[in-house]
């Protein structure tokens, strides 16, 4: 069990690093999908099959696909890739890397400090999750649905483009 965890973890980290350093957006997205799949494996390993499935379906299957659609719409092309290279100079990534490294060191230090009593692997099945979701966390579910509604309306409004009058008249005449 632990070996699966370690391998999947290594894959996730490697895929993420690759994603960060790609110049082409589509390549980076593919690496990100790989990272998310590795995370799904970890979830399944930890005894949370429901969430593993959701990770694949929604995160990798919907959200990332949305990303892909948008990148396609943007139609960035080769020129953008070359411009990206210019933007990844050492002077740009040294500072943030140091900052992130410091944060990582702090987090690991905190995590290593305490002692965690060992426990057996045991997850919670979908039934349990469902009971908790619609029992204790019902309000959260309602709020999440309102959030999704807001996102829906917002995305619709932002994406709506006014058609220029000339085109409309032209279309009706012809």
């Amino acid at each position: 069990m632990t070996t699966v965890f370690y391998i999947a973890g290594a894959v996730a980290i490697a895929a993420t690093i690759m994603m960060l350093t790609r110049l082409n957006a589509v390549h980076a997205l593919l690496y990100l999908i790989v990272s998310l799949l590795a995370a799904a494996v970890i979830f399944y390993d930890l005894g949370a099959p429901f969430v593993a499935a959701l990770e694949v379906i929604i995160y990798a299957g919907a959200i990332m696909v949305l990303f892909v659609f948008v990148v396609m719409l943007l139609n960035l092309g080769e020129q953008a890739s070359r411009a990206e290279r210019g933007l990844l100079t050492p002077s740009i990534w040294i500072g943030p890397s140091v900052l992130a490294a410091v944060l990582l060191a702090e987090l690991i230090w905190i995590l290593m400090r305490g002692s965690v009593p060992p426990a057996e692997a045991a997850g919670a099945g979908p039934a349990e999750v469902g009971m908790a979701l619609f029992g204790r966390y019902l309000i959260g579910v309602e709020l999440a649905s309102m959030l999704l509604l807001a996102g829906l309306v917002g995305a619709y409004h932002l994406g709506w483009r006014r058609v220029p009058k000339a085109k409309v008249i032209h279309a009706s005449r012809s």
Binding site: L20, L99, L103
Partner: peptide, 10 residues
């Protein structure tokens, strides 16, 4: 932290 680096760098 990798994600954070990405936000700050890209």
């Amino acid at each position: 932290t990798l994600g954070l680096t990405g936000v700050l760098v890209r």
